[in-house]
Amino acid sequence: MLFKEKERIFLRHRKVNEKIIIVTFLMPALVLFFGLIVYPVCNTVFLSFHSWKGVYGAAKDFVGLNNYGKVLSSESFWNAMLNSVYFMIGGFVILMPLAFGLALLITSRLKGTKLMKTAFFMPVMLSTTAVALMWVYILNPSYGAANTILRAMGLDALCREWLSTPTLNVWCVVLVNEWMYAGYNMLIFAAGLVAIPDSLYEAAEIDGCSRWKKIRYISIPLSKESFKIFSVLCVTGCLKAFDLIWAMTKGGPNHTSETPATLLYNEAFTFKSFGKSSAIGVVLLVMGVVLSLLMNRLFKKEEI
């Protein structure tokens, strides 16, 4: 009797202890998460319905959907969206084939694949602004290497003011983006390729398939998961493009190379229209979620 009583107290004690442990262990993570992610997101949604000039403690007037109306009817927003579409086009037309090709290379039976892998991946490690700055100087119209090469090849007519010509400057940044992330996406594809069993290729070889056919009918269809990951990362990444474009053109000249993210930053910290900026943020958030769900759906449908 006494023994059982003691055991019960002991067990209850343990249960309380257990709860304390659970709460204290989770607390730091929850505080960080709610304080710096959940609360800011909710606050952005709240702000997007208000007009606020960013004065700390000043009143925020409710303006309904006004901010959204202003954003969605402004030319600069659609120009920025168009620029991020360029990023996406660049991603799917240039980056995807390139990264897949590199992945085929480093998973092939060639010599030196390890060295290739290490070399190709390196650009991702360099910080974005450093990469941006390197390319800004390479693309410099007067002494930059890009124009020097063109002149050396006798193609003077192709020399441009790369970063100050509208649209061309966006494409320059897109290409630098591909340069930076080719190696990274290569790894994503390579991880998928390595998982394909060798026996499939051997069977194809016995059937007399050429190298190209093996890629077309085995490597590409069986890398579907990698293509899905790539697509989701590419689309959401392009919507968020900020660092490179900011460091290379600051959205200029004359706002021609803005992306939604630089627009959002400018609205907030240059023009102090925090409501409008928040509306852009919410649009981006919703679009990101919708597009990634759409991508997932798209790839599922193909399965059937």
Partner: peptide, 21 residues
């Protein structure tokens, strides 16, 4: 799952509140 959703939140949606904070 809450933590998992957190991976999807784009940084730019949070800059204004974090700045005020």
């Amino acid at each position: 799952s809450l933590f998992l959703v957190g991976v999807m939140v784009p940084v730019h949606c949070t800059i204004i509140p974090i700045s005020s904070l």
